[in-house]
Design a protein around this nucleic acid. Structure first.
Lengths: 210, 210, 210, 210
DNA sequence: AATGAATGAGCTTTCATTCAT
DNA sequence: TATGAATGAAAGCTCATTCAT
């Protein structure tokens, strides 16, 4: 085939990435051979290397896509004026997004990316920026809440943001292990925690201002 | 049969496990070769196979040791009569335990075990029982708190327990990525969350009983 | 059939051969990929195969071109009546021709053709005829010189011709390795050898005839 | 097999080198696969890599062995007081050495090393030092001959040494191409050339001193 | 005639495991 | 028990060539 449309090239890349995602989810990065990916994609070994430089490159490409998708999902979820509302929305959006059969492959691959990041600086970079972005957003919202008195004033906003991030990460992990896990009750529990913080803040506020 | 003392055997096993832990932490399971472990341990390839059946076996052995150690650390941390106190103690003990340079290797290996569990039923079993045990303890404590009115009555105790577990898992992950992370402020933030729940429960209680 | 002028075809062939020569000189036959040649030539992979049947075919084509050029350079260099003069002219022409920056690529490729000839009967044929032609000319001239008494009568003319060929081949090799080698002093040394033979013949002659 | 004698290791290395030499002579470096070498050596693929780091490494090892053997063969061949005698001895020893069926493999591999040297700095280094050593010896002998009047005074000793080296290199090449080539008549022709130089020197001397 | 994405056999190298000593 | 050289299947990747457009 001669010169081919840009769209064709993009579609091929995605075809390969989808195949790789399926293989990685099923067998992990290291137990997946190039043959597996090639077979799953319906292409040839050579074709793969037209689109990706190496096996590692496709892991990085997947990490980047994952990061992009997650960032997009969160974009604009923190616009609520009230910071507790903002946190609630963020929790619902980010956690709710995981309750999706189509995300199952991604959850499994995400856990592997966490491990892979420990070895590969490039993947670490991408993976970390998937944490640092939300962490910043959360820290800002929490700090605002503390200033406004809708959140308890004591704990460091950055540390609290990390706790929120952990609540997300832990769900990813637990769901990867147990696909049928009930996400909605998990979200309810998280919302109860947020409500608790709001209540405590209100109490502290009334004491302060009372 | 130049029989050798039981102690000698145990010591050799631990020598190999320490070597494997160091290698796995440094390079990951899959990038670590048997040669690496053998070299690090100061033994020979043949000797390794006297003590472990395979490369996978040592991963499982490490998972089991990790599980055992964690279980021991938590044992008896939930004895407080008051359930919020019990949760507070559990948080301090489990999270505080991570704030330890010597645990650094373990944190990195733990994250890899999470990924590995997705592929290997044996590791999944061990890893899951490292989650299920604490989950049961937490669920009991939380259910008790709800009955006694020291925790808000709404959310499912099991789901809330999962949120607590997530707070632990997320810290392991974040610390693996960022060894210098400030654990004490993280713990403070967690305690503030628990305090919030207690406050909210107290409020709900007074409304109910008032 | 968008037929194209003969000249166009010839020009394309030479364009490709020049590209191949450059690549082969730079990286050797085996380290040069078709992609390299295609890129260097500014054509497409498909276009290459319109003009040459295979990668090997272009090596053969280069060998043939090399052979043709060398034969042309030597043609008519042996016309001197006196055989020592003829040898001197042959030496000056053939060796002098090498002292040329433009020949540098060819020298490097020639050495590779020598090696390649050992594997490929077709290249051996072409390469050998590049030796056998001159060998015949030299043998004739030397035999004549011996008959006429201008060269010492002892050694086999064919063997002496081979020594002359070796003097040429060795220079090609040494220049390929050391592009800045001083060819003119090399030629002087060769001429001194020829002069020595002439002197020895003259002495022998005077003894015989005296 | 456990710890094994030094001799065993050396023998294995030589076993592999012999196998590689046979393969390279037969099919060239690039057409020889590791499988070929492994099969010829009677060992396994893994065993090869216990003794050599790569396919390239064995080419270098062969180049080094070749260099060593040649240097040894020439050592002490230039001790004759008279420089023409010394040159004669050098010619007989170095050229005569090639007239040996066992050397056939080496001749073919040598020609390939010449080509390989153009690409690989390490092989170039080894190969070049196989030329530079003899060149130095020859230059010294020739310069001495010129001082003593046993060789014609005109040409640069270094250049003349290169001509001598070429006579050797050309024979290697011609023999590689034509195994049945008559070396003894080639040597005779070379000796006649040397005799010619001696005669010319004697003549020049008598003119000068006469 | 020209394109260049696609092919897939075949390459070099690795490494978990074994077993003669 | 301990050794470490040996094994060989299987890995990731390359590249000469083809052919639909």
């Amino acid at each position: 085939m001669p010169k081919v449309s840009e769209a064709h090239l993009t579609q091929r890349r995605q075809q390969i990435m989808a195949a790789a995602l399926a293989c990685f989810s099923r067998q992990g990065f290291h137990r997946t051979t190039m043959q597996d990916i090639v077979k799953e994609s319906g292409l040839s070994a050579g074709a793969f290397y037209t689109y990706f430089a190496s096996k590692e490159a496709i892991v990085v490409a997947l990490a980047e896509e994952h990061h992009r998708t997650e960032a997009a999902a969160l974009a604009g979820a923190d616009t609520a004026t009230d910071s507790v509302d903002a946190l609630t929305t963020l929790a619902q959006v980010s956690l709710g997004r995981l309750d999706n059969a189509e995300e199952r492959q991604w959850r499994r691959v995400t856990v592997q990316l966490w491990a892979e990041a420990l070895r590969d600086p490039h993947i670490m970079e991408v993976t970390r920026s998937g944490l640092d972005g939300p962490l910043e957003v959360l820290t800002d919202v929490i700090a605002r809440g503390q200033r406004e008195g809708t959140l308890p004033p004591g704990p460091d906003p950055g540390a609290t943001a990390r706790v929120c991030a952990a609540i997300f990460q832990g769900l990813v992990l637990q769901q990867a292990w147990e696909p049928e896990l009930d996400v909605s009750s998990y979200i309810e529990a998280v919302l109860a925690v947020l409500a608790g913080l709001a209540t405590a803040a209100a109490g502290a506020q009334s004491v302060t201002t009372g």
